[in-house]
């Protein structure tokens, strides 16, 4: 298994945000976690990235337990996150932001290759290369954040609420990009979304999270026709 998370418990002080979640990803899969506000989606992703420590449980990446490994080392192992609310570096230029994503990777040629590819995917970034990231619009920052994660050519991409703040057309575009990355480049993606329809639509499997526990899991398209899911998350 590519990524396996077992018995994950995470607490903030006395509040338990995630109480015993299990899930897995096979290599090359695109898997979604959907759930309402405060269900614990961001908490789970941050825990897989290593930004916050779990109280209990194990995270296994490519057969190796990484539970105690700090985030910057996980990044070097090929895990990258597109964090909630983009978190670009405001006083670095767009280009410099992308450079930070390439940290420790010395292959200059690879960098320019991936850079021109990303500029093709997100043309607005090319036009704004020299501009400070703080001067970008919210949606543009979101694109920059995705590009920054992708430039390192990760093996596992964690995507947190990428549709937030993007206009509908861009949402479709970004999901299309994620789908393409997954299908054509074999990138394994764990997607966390409020926009359940869009994320289930491109996913192979999905987990439904409710206040820190996983209540449903299975084939994404089957879940889409599940009456409960339909009512609560798809709004029809």
């Amino acid at each position: 298994m590519f990524l396996e998370v077992k018995g994950l418990h995470v607490s903030y002080g006395d509040i338990e945000a995630v109480s015993g979640v299990d899930f897995y990803l096979e290599k090359g899969e695109l898997v979604s976690i959907i759930g309402a506000n405060g269900a614990g989606k961001t908490t789970i992703l941050n825990c897989v990235m290593g930004i916050i420590p779990p109280k209990e449980g194990a995270i296994i990446f490519k057969g190796k337990e990484i539970t105690g490994i700090p985030d910057f080392e996980r990044a070097r192992m090929g895990i990258r996150i597109v964090p909630e609310r983009s978190r670009v570096f405001p006083r670095l230029t767009v280009y410099e932001n992308l450079l930070t994503g390439f940290y420790r990777i010395r292959d200059r040629e690879k960098f320019s290759e991936r850079l021109s590819w990303l500029y093709e995917v997100f043309p607005v970034l090319r036009n704004r290369q020299g501009q400070l990231a703080s001067t970008l619009s919210g949606g543009e920052q979101q694109q920059l954040s995705i590009a920054r994660a992708l430039i390192s050519n990760p093996e596992l991409l964690l995507v947190d609420e990428v549709s937030m703040g993007l206009m509908p057309k861009l949402v479709d575009q970004v999901f299309e990009i994620l789908k393409r990355l997954n299908e054509e480049h074999g990138l394994t993606i764990l997607l966390v979304e409020q926009n359940a329809y869009a994320s289930l639509n491109i996913s192979k499997r999905a987990y439904v999270l409710e206040t820190g526990t996983c209540v449903l899991e299975g084939d994404a398209h089957e879940l889409m026709s599940n009456p409960e899911v339909k009512e609560v998350y798809l709004g029809n």
């Binding site: 700090p70 985030d71 910057f72 990044a75 070097r76 990258r80 570096f89």
Partner: peptide
């Protein structure tokens, strides 16, 4: 150099920098 970029990144968004592979 690279280091200054890393320093900038850490000063601004330490968590994001760390998740980018930059050890604060």
């Amino acid at each position: 150099s690279w280091a200054s970029l890393a320093f900038y990144a850490i000063r601004e968004e330490e968590t994001a920098a760390s998740a980018m592979g930059i050890s604060p």
